[in-house]
């Protein structure tokens, strides 16, 4: 457990890794918008190509990216099937009189949906989770939400909670493992019996885990107070997020890409979504 790094962050030295995390959050949102703007065959071709280019630039191995698609295969498969069978259109593929009617539009819809989901996952992965450390991400979100402070939204508190959670995930994972081992050594059985019995078997793990988490929280809050923590007011930061030309350039590229997708929607090759 100790060996596994938290999050999906994949350390590498690429242009995308070096972008300002705030821009990466914005880029992600824009890219998602692009995937939804896309309607034509040429547009989807461009979108798929852009996703592949992103993977290439980020220097993240393709198999790592594909691995994150795997848990979503069920959903993708499901939407694929629904699109094929439930879409109605004009061009019937199945012969007249068959109980199941499949239209050409249905197949186009399914394929487009698949490409859209693929681009969506790749885009968020490459712009955010694989190339940004959780800590940077927290800082970026805090910084982007700063305007909300005027509306008395406790932005700093949320960010602090997020970063403490990140800090304690490995600690508590290790702790859970330790407690499980200790109770197993006293003959606890977590793997057999009815659902009810198994749920009950978790009590000897959950109670110590809660007790320990609460103790840790008390100690941590003491330690933070000792280190003069008094909320976000008047607090400075060692790491200040800085953006430069590269960040603005990447923003421009993605915006242009979106405009391009809109233009390509007008190209009447193949099927275009309504």
């Amino acid at each position: 457990m100790k060996g596994i790094s938290f999050g999906q962050y994949y350390p590498a030295d690429s242009v995308i890794h070096r972008l300002d995390p705030r821009f990466k959050v914005i880029l992600t949102i824009l890219y998602i918008v692009c995937t939804f703007l896309c309607k034509s065959l040429v547009g989807f071709a461009a979108l798929t190509l852009s996703a592949l280019v992103l993977i290439f630039i980020s220097r993240i191995p393709l198999r790592i990216v594909l691995r994150s698609v795997r848990p979503l295969l069920m959903i993708i498969g499901f939407t694929f099937i629904i699109n094929i069978f439930w879409s109605r259109g004009e061009q019937l593929i199945t012969p007249e009189g068959w109980p199941i009617r499949i239209y050409a539009e249905g197949i186009w819809n399914a394929v487009y949906m698949f490409l859209r989901i693929f681009a969506l996952i790749t885009g968020t992965g490459i712009f955010l989770t694989y190339t940004t450390t959780p800590m940077d991400l927290t800082d970026a979100i805090e910084s982007l939400l700063t305007p909300l402070k005027k509306l008395h939204v406790p932005v700093h508190v949320f960010a602090m909670m997020m970063s403490i959670t990140l800090r304690f995930i490995p600690t508590l994972t290790e702790e859970t493992e330790k407690i499980m081992n200790a109770q197993k050594a006293r003959g606890a059985n977590f793997t057999s019996g009815s659902l009810m019995q198994r749920a009950k078997a978790l009590i000897p793990i959950l109670i110590p885990l809660f007790v320990s988490a609460i103790n840790r929280a008390v100690e941590l809050s003491n330690a933070m107070e000792c280190r003069c923590y008094h909320g976000g007011d008047g607090r400075t930061r060692l790491n200040v997020l800085r953006c430069n030309g590269r960040d603005w350039a990447s923003l421009a590229i993605v915006v242009l890409f979106g405009a391009g997708i809109l233009l390509l929607n007008g190209v009447g090759i193949g099927y275009t979504l309504g």
């Binding site: 450390t133 959780p134 800590m135 970063s163 403490i164 990140l166 800090r167 103790n215 840790r216 100690e219 941590l220 330690a223 933070m224 280190r227 003069c228 923590y229 008094h230 008047g234 607090r235 400075t236 930061r237 060692l238 790491n239």
Partner: peptide
Amino acid sequence: NQLVATVVEQDVAFGPENLG
């Protein structure tokens, strides 16, 4: 239970950051 940040130097900075 007394380290706050996920990177050593950011943790060391925590106190001084609070001092502004």
